[in-house]
Amino acid sequence: MAADPIHQFEIKKIATLGEIGGVEIAFTNSAAFMIAAVIFTAGGLVLATAGRSLVPGRVQSVAEITYEFVADMVRSATGDEGMRKFFPLVFSLFSFILVLNMFGMIPGLFTVTSHIVITAVLALLVFFTVIGVGLYKHGFRFFRLFVPSGIPIVIMPLIVAIEVMSFLSRPISHSVRLFANMLAGHITLKVFASFIVMLGGLGAVGWAGAILPLGLTTALIALEFLVAFLQAYVFAILTCIYLNDALHPGH
């Protein structure tokens, strides 16, 4: 049904790859779009920088601006050390999410980031990177992250428990934010767009009335483009802030 706002998020099986423990492993439209995004990003960057002209052309400018943008973000949040170690990770995450979000804005295409499985795995990747790097670099001193200084010893256990909970809840909010924004945005868009068609069914008066949702839909599309970029940015900068904790726990 075309008017069903949830229909656009349906996962469709393209081919079955095999079976693991009775669970079918299928190549889905989601996987196809992820591969497309990787090819688009990697291929686009390789092509854009192939010319290596001193005065960049249009495509090369885009690649350079993206690099500068992410590099500034990483450097300001994690310092030079973080820049050396984590730039590839943050850049990959940022461009992957941004391209997937933008793919989702093209009518008829699938929005991969509107599924919490995807965003949760990305957030957990960051989460475990933080723990791994923190433990590797600082050993047990990493756990000073949970012990704020200047707290009376009496309420210390309570504060530590709350800090641990706060730390553990990070991947949840990290992933839910991206997923919820994309899901809600696309549903809103679809609902308003279907109002146009519904009103149009009423005849001439309906068509006149449909101008309102048409205007709203246009405005929403602009807003959605902003959200698509902003959420990729927010995901990346949160990644930087969390990684900074791994490098400098407890300050």
């Binding site: 909970m165 553990l168 809840s169 949840i172 934010r177 924004n181 902003l226």
Partner: peptide
């Protein structure tokens, strides 16, 4: 737009804590 984003951000932070708890 960004006020909406702010609201979503704060609520998601808050809800994440409760859900995890």
């Amino acid at each position: 737009p960004s006020n909406l984003a702010r609201a979503l951000r704060l609520s998601s932070e808050f809800i994440a804590g409760i859900l995890l708890g």
